[in-house]
Design a protein around this nucleic acid. Structure first.
Lengths: 241, 241
DNA sequence: TAGTGGTCTAGACCACTGG
DNA sequence: CAGTGGTCTAGACCACTAC
């Protein structure tokens, strides 16, 4: 089990930072120094330092050197999948309504559309083991020639719906998470009493050019939704393979 | 404004993926092909492909080639800072209680400690412009010789407290987010009525070796807490500089 | 066996920061 | 000015995959 050179180096540097030998703001040895000290080429040293930077430990300042970063403590990786966030793994959904309607002022504001642009409204009930766990409303600016098949709507997630014409790779998405109490028409749908706690997740979809292509809200019965997020250094957004 | 070679290449490949010319599962041209096609060295081609991989567009399979990744749609970057998540930028806090107590069964479970290990309990009220917006309870396994100065507790975030002995770089942190209704002793503290919606964020801190070093819950008055998360390709967890 | 990505080298030139 | 990181090159060897 021989270790690769650049792995060895990055491990040693990482450990020094983790142990506090190198503290935020401290300068690392220069590329040339590391190159001589470890008897490896500068290219390989650079590969190690680049890895360390990817992991969030350091940053480089051209003309000066590499420095230990002040740890960023307020960014987490959040897991969220609208169809699979409750306990039930085999989540299904029930389509309540699909309509094309003139926009309300709220919709015009959220979707950034004029008042003569129609809006597709999709209302669903998310189910786990047959019981409702969330009420879901989505709004899409209406485009002619957008065939919406019921089966697609029933099982699709938001980006899949709004991004039918757009590659998923060029979509942006914002979430807002807050707590509310159930009131009005939502109560009978979710089969909860007035005032029951809900976790509300608003989603907004954008194209790469920041044009809004979808907006929606999901009202989860609190007991059936727990969001998880984690923070740690060196974490990656994408797995290998 | 001449563009760097590896930037040019990564831009072209990225665009092909975003436009759908290259779809998930498709194989990219090999390093040698790209090297010849663009008349740049293999090292530079590798730099571009490495960047593309970092951004989440592709992955590499040794002996086979580079492939377009199936987009990961369920991971977001969540912004959360316990002291600064409400509207008020100049958030302060009021210390309600600091105690060393024998652990309850709940604490023993959450902190993974035996019943003879004492626990430090810290209760705070988070304020924005003088008014309470959240109630905060933290539990730390008690260590002898851990001097807790009131001023520190008042303004410290959780990792700063629990990680006094540990470098922030070797701490892991999990969040759980859910909705609940206010009840019991929390109501008068937060000055809300019974049943008022709350956003509850549970935090658990671990060392690099997965030993629990802290656990806590923050009860935000729903109106004063909106969490934000975002998803898009190519996003980075750490800024440059 | 031919082709692929993965590791590593030595060396060149550049722009930038600091004294 | 000497030192730093940033870009780019040409070439070597390896392990793996697929045929």
């Amino acid at each position: 089990m021989k270790e690769l050179l650049y792995i060895q180096l990055v491990d040693q540097l990482r450990k020094k930072i983790q142990l506090g030998v190198l503290k935020p703001g401290d300068m690392l040895p220069s590329e040339n120094e590391l190159s001589q000290e470890y008897q490896i080429s500068r290219v390989t040293v650079r590969k190690s330092l680049s890895l360390l930077e990817q992991e969030g430990y350091t940053y480089s300042a051209p003309g000066k050197g590499y420095f230990v970063r002040e740890p960023v403590t307020d960014k987490y990786i959040l897991n969220f999948n609208e169809m699979n966030n409750a306990g039930g793994s085999a989540a299904s959904s029930k389509l309540l309504e699909v309509n094309v309607v003139p926009p309300s002022t709220k919709m015009m504001y959220e979707l950034q559309i004029p008042d003569d642009r129609y809006v597709i409204v999709i209302k669903r009930l998310l189910l786990a083991e047959g019981a409702p766990i969330a009420y879901d409303v989505k709004y899409l600016p209406y485009n002619r020639g957008l065939p919406l098949v019921e089966r697609e709507i029933k099982y699709a997630t938001f980006p899949e719906l709004a991004g039918k014409k757009t590659s998923l790779f060029s979509i942006k998405k914002d979430l807002k998470i807050c707590a509310k109490n159930a009131s009005g028409g939502v109560c009978p749908l979710l089969n909860v009493e007035e005032g029951h706690p809900l976790l509300v997740i608003s989603q907004k979809l954008y194209t790469a050019e920041n044009k809004v292509i979808g907006w929606g809200e999901i009202y989860y019965i609190a007991e059936f939704c727990e969001l998880n997020a984690m923070w740690s250094f060196g974490q990656r957004l994408y797995d290998n393979g």
